[in-house]
Structures are given as C-alpha cells and as structure tokens.
Design a protein around this nucleic acid. Sequence first.
DNA 1: ATGATTATGATAATGAATTGCATTTAGTCT
DNA 2: AGACTAAATGCAATTCATTATCATAATCAT
Lengths: 148, 148
Amino acid sequence: MNKEEELLKSHISRHNLKVTKERSAVLRAFLASARHITAEELYRKMKDENSSVGLATIYRTLNLFCESGLAEQRQFGDGQARYELVYNVSHHDHLICQECKRIIEFQNEEIEVLQEKVAKKNHFKIFSHKLELYGLCSDCSKVQAETK
Amino acid sequence: MNKEEELLKSHISRHNLKVTKERSAVLRAFLASARHITAEELYRKMKDENSSVGLATIYRTLNLFCESGLAEQRQFGDGQARYELVYNVSHHDHLICQECKRIIEFQNEEIEVLQEKVAKKNHFKIFSHKLELYGLCSDCSKVQAETK
DNA sequence: ATGATTATGATAATGAATTGCATTTAGTCT
DNA sequence: AGACTAAATGCAATTCATTATCATAATCAT
Ligand SMILES: [Mn+2]
Ligand SMILES: [Mn+2]
Ligand SMILES: [Zn+2]
Ligand SMILES: [Zn+2]
C-alpha cells in the first residue's frame, strides 16, 4: 500500500466512510495520469481502460481526495476544474500557455515571502493563494514569431 | 462626456457598433457601483432604479466593456464572474476575505518584477496574471479570536 | 451471516452564462 | 423627414460543468 493509499484510507476510516473498488480504481487512475487532469478526462481515461466508473462518482471521489488532503482543485480559467496530487508534493504556482494549454510549475520563495508581507501590511491572515501567469510558452512564442 | 464614455464610444464606432440607451444606462450604473460587481448584482441594482435592461444585455454589455478595455472580468472562486473598471486605474491584485467576502486591493511592484523573472527563466511570455490571497481580513480575524 | 450505513449509477436538477429569434432601434443614405 | 440595412434587445431556450436525488448495491462492524 503506497503513501497516497494510506492517506486516503486513514481519512476514510476517520470519517466512517468505506473503501470501495471504485475509489481504489479512481485513485489508481488518478495517480497514473498527468497532473492537472479534469474529471471528464479521468472519466474517459478510465472508460478507455475498461474500468468504467460513473462520472458522478469520479466527481465525488475527486472531492474526497481534496477533503483528505491528497489532491487540490485548480481553476485555470477554462471553466473546468482540474485536480492535482499535492500530498508529498511541494507547493508551487503555475505558468499557463494560452496557445497549447501547457502548464508549467514553478516555485519562488521570494514571492511567497512578499505575499506574507502584503498580508501583514493589510492585517490579513492568508490561508491559501493563487498565482497564475498566463501567456505563451517558449515553443508557442517561437511559432508566433515565425508566422508573422 | 467622461473619459470612460469616450473610450467606449471610440470602441463602438471603430467596430461599427451602435450607441444605445441600454449601453449608456449600463455604463452609468456600472461606473456608479462598487468595484467587483457581478452581472446579476448590476441587473438587480438597475431594476431597483427603474432602469430595467434585460439580464442578457447586461452580460453582453459587460463583455463589450471588457473588449473595449474599459473593464476586466475577475473570478474569485465563488462561481460568478465579477467586473471592475480598469481604464485609468492602476494595476493591482487582490486579498479576498473568505468570511465577509470583502475584497482588498493591493499593489506590489517587487512581486511583479519577480513574476517577470520567473517567466524569463522559463522562456515564457506573460500576457496577464492573477494573484489572489485568500483568508481572513482583520475584522474577521478578530471575531474569530473572540469566539473561541 | 445480518443489518445498519454508506456508496454507486443513472438521471434529473442546478445555476451561470450564452444563444436563437422575432422585433425594435440606430445610423446612414437619399 | 422617410426608407433602408445592420446591429441590438428581450425573452426563452440552450449549454455546460457540476451537484442532487433516489433506488439499488456494496461495505463492514457486530
Ligand atoms: Mn500544479
Ligand atoms: Mn480590483
Ligand atoms: Zn504553448
Ligand atoms: Zn472579512
């Protein structure tokens, strides 16, 4: 049993929930898929692999992952929630290419410190934050330069 | 005719659109309302002031404002788009109180510079960004401290 | 194994936002 | 001013992601 499975099961037992084959299957598929996956994408992926779990259950299970601290939901502005593993993954923010939809992760401790400074100045207590940089990745910048 | 009206009318004529009483009314109401208003809120406000414009037109007009560079849309995670005047308003980011929903604006040039640095390191070209700090404002922190 | 409780799948419902369409309006050209 | 054309409006219908409902099935403590 891997760390992620352990975390989920501990959350499940702590809340009088039940371990089901669907939940295990969704966890397996989730851990095996690319970061920042949508519910619909995960649903299709599982269907393609002949392990069909209802879409409603995918949504329910992804929410469960978030409640357990295993995953977090992201909104990158395209109207679909994306989910990513955050357990045993260090905090990071995102660069989002508006052309190819690529998502690049980055960490910047200086920015984090400055955020706290801003909060302090405003007597504000930060619980979470969202920093997203939208634009063009290097590949797409090149293409655009060539085209014109 | 104020600056905002001028900007909008210039966009309108440049795109062979038309100045209508509805658009003028929405602009007036928008400029007179609090920052970060939702379409629904603006709709209600106008209805209350006996200047009823259809909700679809409110949406269409707010989109027009965004296209003209007068306003920008924000998503603060509650599932409803908010709009704010950005013409002749300097760039800023937001602190959002999860308790009372208050929105505090701040500017931090250091963070902006660091964002560019991150982008450069990743050969990324930034077109826009979103920095939101979620938590408790000073008032709500106080209440929470007293309650427990 | 039983039984209480939780989970699932299928489908309906929700809610913000957009769209189609018949009608109205704005702006331009006589 | 009147006529014409393109654009705008209101209303209802539609879309799309997500959640809720509910009958049935599965889990798990006893
Ligand atoms: Mn990430
Ligand atoms: Mn603002
Ligand atoms: Zn790209
Ligand atoms: Zn507050």
